[in-house]
Design a protein around this nucleic acid. Structure first.
Lengths: 192, 192, 192, 192
DNA sequence: CGTTAAACGAGACGGTACGTCATGTCTTCGA
DNA sequence: TCGAAGACATGACGTACCGTCTCGTTTAACG
């Protein structure tokens, strides 16, 4: 077993780094983010950050995973209602959070950076995707969703328009708009 | 009339810059892109680039606008079929092109950079969005799409899932997968 | 004979270049001087300057030669008095002119730049040195200066301390201080 | 006492910068000198130089102060002889060194650049001037020099002609010529 | 309770790129 | 042909971060 010799890492310092990263990220976005700036804002030496993360992308990936709230998956028994609520809450949270665009910027970068892609996949995407697929399957078993559509396609149909409207079309997503969009999207996957 | 005084800019040099930018972009993505590198690859001096574009973001925005093919909008008389074809061709082109992720990375950055946002809006988004809305309206008038759904919502329903599946879920979009997804999405907006 | 074909050079433009050079030289010195700045200040295009002078050093050498007043050599019959007056007037003029230090900076540079050295020698130094040597010889013939000291040594003895005090020691040279210094220096070369 | 925090500066690197500066200075003079070139020659990154000196002028001022030998002030008991020797050795050293003209170029520039003036004054001039004034005073007390001439004037009388002959008149100063010139200059300040 | 090994701050260092400026040459147009 | 205007390759400027590396100091856990 590995005995933890020497001075252990201070949890508080890690927290300060994360907090500073979030603050700067919200202020000016990913590409303007600097480890130098984070270090200064956190009152920490630069090598201390490198001791914990291999670089900017990994740091941000972790920070986002910690800070962007996971999908809230209610469980009222009404699987379809739960799914709609989850989708609406998801996009509202995203669009209110300063970190949403950052996450999507990273996803785009990830297409050119395998290491980053893995990091994101592991720390961020996985947790959110798996859980929603479970919910979708429950809704299908309850007979409320067309059973011949694979769960991941349902996911795309439900979440895709929301993301698109917010990220690409640049329209604000309040709870009301989001719900209307979700309701229309749902028509595609309802059993009939 | 304004007489063009002084030595005129060489068109060929501009072309070389654009070509080099595209090549490097495809190779290693936006964040690894360097004006220094572009200049070297184009056999051009760095100040020559700055004379034409104010910076990396603006250059890339222009280059993408020039290089990513605009929406192909067929006109066979079958407005719904045309819309589906346009959507499928769009996502296939995107996912085959090395520049797709770059464009979406920029869209995300634009949320923190108003200047970039304007550039992109003007040079890239506008042309693509307006034309597809016209097509959607024609389909609605033809009675094939539900008339009570605003055209921009139709756009989100049709394009959103494609983008999501490709960019977020990271799944390859061949013509066949794309068509299936579009067909399902269309159920949400068909008149019934 | 050379027939002057094409549009003749404008004398006025040359004058404007010289004037602008002098002004900028006085303001900020030689090393901060730019052809770009001169062109702008003179309302002239840069290539127009290059058509007349090969570069900054040559331009400045010419300008100084034109602008720093030549040695004033009075001729009252009293050769020794004339020499003293000439020396005093010389250093006072130098130290009051903004161009004095520039000239000495160039002299120093000339030790590493033969072309500049020739330019300066021809345009600036020669005229001043030769005339004073003549004056010294007259004083020697009049029996007022020791005859066994070569004229150029007399020149060094008389002018050297003035230059040194002003340039190296950085002391202001008003007419009164200068005269005192000259009088003492003269003791070295007077006949006794 | 101030504890030296952080990684200490490497003495060896500083030495390499100074050496490279000297070499390039001797080769091509001050105005052709480039921090870029120094960095390359020293095998050092450019920012490393800026960490130690604010710019080219300051670097060169320091380098000269370190490298141009200070006045050698012999002390044989014969104050006048010592002064003459010091003057001769000084100008011979200067005229043999490649850095002499550089120093005088800087002195001229300093008239337009207060910061440089201070640097030079502090690092270069001060040490040399003060010591020679002491020697002059001793010679005056020994009754060998006219007591009614301020020491700084004696300095100007003795050193001025040497500098002038070498820098302005451009004549080589071997030990023999220098001594002859000094002997004549001394006549001006000897007690009689 | 002292050892000891790692964490930590500070900051130097070789790099790389930035965005700007000036150079000297060139092309184009109008006078 | 001159002159203005300005493009262009070149190359240096001074600055900002990068990721790595010494340092001296602090802090626990272990022996």
């Amino acid at each position: 077993m590995i005995s933890a010799r020497g001075r252990p890492r201070s949890r508080e310092i890690g927290d300060r780094i994360v907090a500073a990263t979030l603050a700067l990220l919200a202020e000016s976005g990913y590409s303007a983010l600097t480890l130098e700036g984070i270090a200064k804002a956190a009152g920490v030496a630069r090598p201390t950050i490198y001791r914990r993360w291999p670089g900017k992308a990994a740091l941000v990936a972790d920070v986002l995973a910690d800070s962007i709230p996971p999908l809230v998956l209610p469980d009222t028994g009404d699987a379809v209602g739960d799914l709609m609520t989850a989708a609406v809450e998801f996009i509202v949270t995203m669009s209110e959070s300063p970190y949403g665009p950052v996450a999507y910027g990273l996803l785009a970068e990830a297409h050119h950076d395998d290491e980053l892609a893995n990091h994101l996949q592991r720390a961020y995407v996985a947790a959110r995707v798996v859980s929603v697929l479970g919910l979708i399957e429950r809704a299908q078993h309850a007979g409320r969703l067309a059973g011949d559509i694979p769960p991941d396609v349902v996911r795309d149909i439900v979440f895709g328009p929301l993301i698109f409207r917010w990220l690409v079309a640049g329209q604000p997503m309040d709870r009301c708009n989001a719900r209307r969009l979700v309701e229309i999207a749902f028509r595609a996957v309802e059993s009939r």
